[in-house]
Design a protein around this nucleic acid. Structure first.
Length: 815
RNA sequence: GCCGAGGUGGCGGAAUGGUAGACGCGGCGGACUUAAAAUCCGCUUCCUGCAAGGGAGUGUGGGUUCGAGUCCCUCCCUCGGCACCA
């Protein structure tokens, strides 16, 4: 009696054996081509849910496939372990963030091990350990010395709930916090920034990246490059030390159409340019703006607001006096915070002009324009009008001509403006890598010397959120000596955004234990760039963007010799459950554990791959997984029950050989393209055919054994435990995971017979099984003489016959 | 508003411009069983017909083609992202 399929027993047994034998240990083995297959490491939230498995199980199958294909595969795993939830848990439950995080890691590691992945656990990376964050701090110093890290006072995004500042990238949707969805407010604070804008142009270049188009578009939009010109408008009243105001415009060709001038309410010149008789109104407006939330202010479709300051600028092209207003739709952070308003050719300016009865002057003629007032702003191109010497010039040429004139006269120049802002990395929280900076009354800002790293987090800090870093109240941490003059000094108490930690973890995996450096340069040279990076698309302008910036900066510092970290990127879709994305806060998480116990990790892996195309995600279904579980059970029975050959039918043997090779071909192509769902249907078709053969027993024992051997190797990436067990039970040497991927023979994979479709006027009328190599004449002859076809063509005029080789004969007739 | 992705049986989903619905779930019928579960076999897009067959059918409406789920245009819906960026 053959024992029943017992996934739990099989899976734990093989996992122990694999671990004991270190079969997934990765060496830097130059004789094989390397393949770095990376999956985004999880945040240490406590439990992995099915959504995590959806990211990890298919990528593990892919890594296994690459291994079997003969690559030296690095497929590591680690934990993104700093961050707010740990601190919040500490506040709520009185557990230290370190203990909370480590407890979670322990549990998540157990869950990950139960998945049976090829992770080499000796390479695990945990970002909250001093052995790791020491190097995060080291990178900060490198950036500081390279002029890429600076401290500045700026209006920053503040999350009142998280009690910390946020990077622009972490403000999402209608101006809410990426983490807790609380509306974000603005605060004027002295903070640390990374100069990511220095790389704006380089970050736009995705030309050597095999990345999804939508991610590239999102990043491009985020950088927001605009070509245009910077133009100076002289102040009419030159009594102030400031003689002019610069604006940025993408349409210098419309400069004759300027009828008013706008400043952001926060613009530094506002108070100086406000005439006494307007002061009360201006102050009132500015106060009103200040209590508007950022997202209200930029909400589209709002009625335009603003006030006149009472002073004027002079238009450099025609010497006109232009009134200066302030309006909240002018953003202080973009361009110069000032706008030359051209209501005829900008919809926003037109709305403003209408509201405040300001003049509108058309200076670019729309097609067919006869001088009437425009209903809507015309933003297209056309001949210049009302533009002095430039009248009649096409606007594209006008653009060039105005730029040339401004440059010649010195009141303007061509320029490029980016929407991208520098990356704010300070966080007023405890659980992050301390920024390695000291403040000395004598020496000012002094970086901590490299040899003094790490700046350790004190274990005795209080975590109560006060809007300032808990480290600020920890005297033993704050008080230090100046590295330069040895006098008393204070430590920086802000910690770094966790995205700094995750901007270089993929380098650390290559040499996780090295104590001499952040990474071993030779190993990074061997493994990087990452061949394939998989994870969710939600990181498009955060993690993925920062990691690219980091890599480019490291390249410029000479620390690495490549400027893009991830050659190929693939985003899996989202697993939904009860109509919603799985998340703790929605309370709809499905834990893999109970399914692993009941049906086995192989079934969970298989179901997640079978659910649909990986990039589209899908709905988790308790019913769906039993289909895969039953299939694995059938495979168990198919292979463990002795096969008895009762007769040998050469035709069936040939057919089995053909189907086997066809399956190898399909499974290989599907894996390469992440089409796990169709890969599994191919395997099911083969196993269904094998079941039929086992019933009839009409192939020889050796042919049967060979087919089973192929089948198991094709199954190994998806169901590593079951494949190993059956490989072992069929007398093969350990381990199937060190076997080569099967190769197919093209002539065997090819179809020998095909169903010829016979259509009359494009409608299916008959089918007939023919040799695949059938010739055209023969096919036509056959089709025209079929009884079923004759009924449709007799007595009609044969117009033409279309023949698609070995597929279709379409007979076109007319009555 | 703009940019992506998508819309196919009761459900998840397959289909190089050439048999629409592979594979699986569910359902129905049968075998095994005292019975049930499990397992195995068969059927399962809809309408019509005793049947052979016929007709319709891939969100909507048009177009290209011998032939369209697939290509082009219009519109509708769902999901994701961006959004007063001068």
């Amino acid at each position: 009696m053959v024992p029943k399929y017992n996934p739990q027993e099989i899976e734990t047994r093989w996992q122990q054996r694999w671990a004991a034998d270190h079969i997934y240990k990765v060496w830097q083995d130059d004789s094989r081509p390397r393949f770095y297959a990376l999956t985004m490491f999880p945040y240490t939230s406590g439990d992995l849910h099915i959504g995590h498995w959806y990211a990890m199980a298919p990528s593990d199958a892919y890594a296994r496939f690459k291994r079997m294909q003969g690559y030296n595969v690095l497929h590591p795993m680690g934990f993104d372990a700093f961050g707010l939830p740990a601190e919040n848990a500490a506040i709520n439950r009185g557990i230290h963030p370190y203990d909370w995080t480590m407890k979670n890691i322990k549990n998540m590691r157990r869950q990950l091990r139960s998945m049976g992945a090829v992770y080499d656990w000796s390479r695990e990376v945990v970002t909250c350990l001093p052995t790791y964050y020491r190097w995060t701090q080291w990178f900060f110093l490198k950036f500081y010395h390279a002029g890429l890290a600076y401290r500045a006072k700026a209006p920053v995004n503040w999350c009142p709930r998280c009690q910390t500042v946020l990077a622009n990238e972490q403000v999402v949707g209608e101006g809410v916090c990426e983490r807790c969805s609380t509306p974000v407010t603005k605060r004027e604070l002295e903070q640390w920034f990374f100069r990511i804008t220095k790389y704006a142009e380089e970050l736009l270049d995705h030309s050597h990246l095999d990345w999804p188009e939508r991610i590239k578009i999102m990043q491009r939009n985020w950088v927001g490059k605009s070509d245009g010109a910077e133009v100076s408008f002289r102040l009419e009243d030159e009594g102030t030390e400031q003689k002019e105001i610069r604006v940025f415009t993408t349409r210098p060709d419309t400069i004759f159409g300027v009828t008013f001038f706008l400043l952001a309410p926060e613009h530094p010149l506002v108070s100086r340019l406000t005439r006494p008789e307007h002061k009360a109104e201006v102050d009132k407006y500015i106060a009103w703006c200040r209590h508007q939330a950022e997202y209200e202010r930029v909400a589209l479709g709002r009625e335009k607001t603003g006030v006149f300051l009472g002073s004027y600028v002079i238009n450099p092209v025609n010497g006109e006096r232009v009134p200066i207003w302030i309006a909240d739709y002018v953003l202080p952070t973009y361009g110069t915070g000032a706008v030359m308003a051209v209501p005829a050719h900008d919809q926003r300016d037109l709305e403003f002009a209408k509201r405040f009865k300001l003049p509108v002057r058309t200076v670019i003629a729309p097609p067919g324009w006869t001088g009437e007032e425009l209903r809507e702003a015309y933003a297209g191109s056309g001949a210049m009008v009302n533009s002095g010497d430039f009248n009649g010039l096409p606007s594209e040429q006008g653009y060039e001509a105005i730029c040339a004139l401004s440059e010649a006269k010195g009141w303007g120049k061509r320029t490029v403006v980016y929407r991208l802002r520098d990356w704010l990395i300070s966080r007023q929280r405890y659980w992050g890598a301390p920024i390695p900076i000291t403040y000395c009354d004598k020496c000012g800002i002094v970086p901590v010397p490299e040899e003094d790293l790490p700046v350790l987090l004190p274990s005795d800090a209080e975590f109560k959120p006060t809007g300032e870093s808990p480290l600020k109240y920890c005297q033993s941490f704050v008080n230090t000596t100046c590295p330069r003059c040895s006098g008393p000094a204070r430590r920086e108490t802000d910690t770094m955004d966790t995205f700094v930690c995750s901007s270089w973890y993929f380098l650390r995996y290559t040499s996780p234990k090295t104590r001499r450096a952040s990474f071993d340069a030779a190993k990074v040279k061997y493994w990087l760039p990452v061949n394939l990076y998989t994870g969710g698309a939600e990181h498009a302008v955060m993690h993925l963007f920062y990691a690219r910036f980091f890599t480019k900066a490291l390249k410029d510092m000479g620390l690495v010799d490549f400027d893009e970290p991830f050659a190929r990127l693939f985003n899996q879709g989202t697993i939904i459950y009860r109509g919603d994305k799985m998340s703790k806060s929605r309370g709809n998480v499905v834990a893999p554990d109970e399914y692993v116990v009941k049906l086995g990790a192989d079934a969970v892996r298989g179901y997640l791959m079978f659910i649909g195309p990986w990039e589209l995600g899908g709905e988790w279904s308790d019913r769906g997984i039993v289909g895969i579980s039953r299939w694995l059970n059938r495979i168990w029975g198919l292979v463990t029950t002795d096969y008895t050959s009762r007769a040998v039918d050469p035709e069936t043997e040939k057919e089995l050989l053909h189907l086997t090779h066809k399956t190898i071909k399909e499974v290989t192509a599907d894996l390469e393209n992440f089409r796990f769902n169709t890969m599994l249907s191919s395997l099911m078709e083969l196993s269904n055919y094998l079941s039929k053969i086992r019933e009839s027993g009409i192939v020889s024992g050796s042919v049967w054994q060979e087919a089973i051997g192929y089948f198991l190797r094709l199954l190994a990436p998806t169901a590593p435990h079951l494949a190993e067990e059956l490989w072992n039970r069929t007398g093969h040497p350990y381990s199937i995971h060190n076997e080569s991927w099967p190769e197919y023979a093209e002539d065997l994979a090819e179809e020998k017979e095909t169903t010829l479709i016979i259509q009359v006027n494009g409608k299916l009328r008959d089918k007939v099984l023919v040799p695949a190599a059938i010739g055209e004449a023969e096919a036509r002859e056959l089709a025209l003489n079929r009884e079923r076809v004759k009924a449709y063509i007799d007595g009609k005029n044969l117009i033409r016959v279309i023949y698609v080789p070995s597929r279709v004969v379409n007979i076109v007739v007319a009555s």
